[in-house]
């Protein structure tokens, strides 16, 4: 019975299975949007760890060269479907490689 539960068709008590909230696109709440500059990022993953939505990810096909480290680092990007624009990634980035910009819709 529980295999049918989702938030597409409501259940008594609005019960859902793990992953059932995947359709809740919290990106609609956003007014500010992060801009990942892919310049100074040292790959520390602080942005991934502090993101309350878990929507910052490593973009496997993309890399940037960090002069100071003399090596390439995988790009981080965010999923606009879920990013609420809270700015925690930008606030915590130790090398100031994320800006927050006003999103115009």
């Amino acid at each position: 019975m529980s295999a049918k539960l989702s938030m597409d068709k409501l259940s008594i008590g609005c019960v859902c299975l793990p992953g059932g909230s995947i359709g809740n696109h919290t990106g609609a709440w956003r007014s500010m949007m992060p801009v990942f500059k892919h310049a100074a990022c040292i790959g520390c993953r602080a942005c991934e760890l502090v993101c309350p939505e878990g929507c910052v990810f490593e973009n496997p096909g993309k890399k940037h060269l960090v002069e100071k480290l003399k090596r390439e680092i995988a790009d981080r990007d965010f999923d606009p479907d879920y990013c609420k624009g809270c700015g925690m990634c930008a606030e915590e980035c130790p090398v100031d490689d994320i800006d927050m910009g006003l999103e115009e819709k």
Partner: peptide, 21 residues
């Protein structure tokens, strides 16, 4: 119970609803 919390069959109660639900 109609639905119940069970570690073997996890589920959430009173889930988040967007304005459309």
């Amino acid at each position: 119970a109609l639905y119940k919390l069970d570690p073997g069959d996890p589920m959430s109660f009173g889930c988040f609803t967007e304005p459309d639900k």
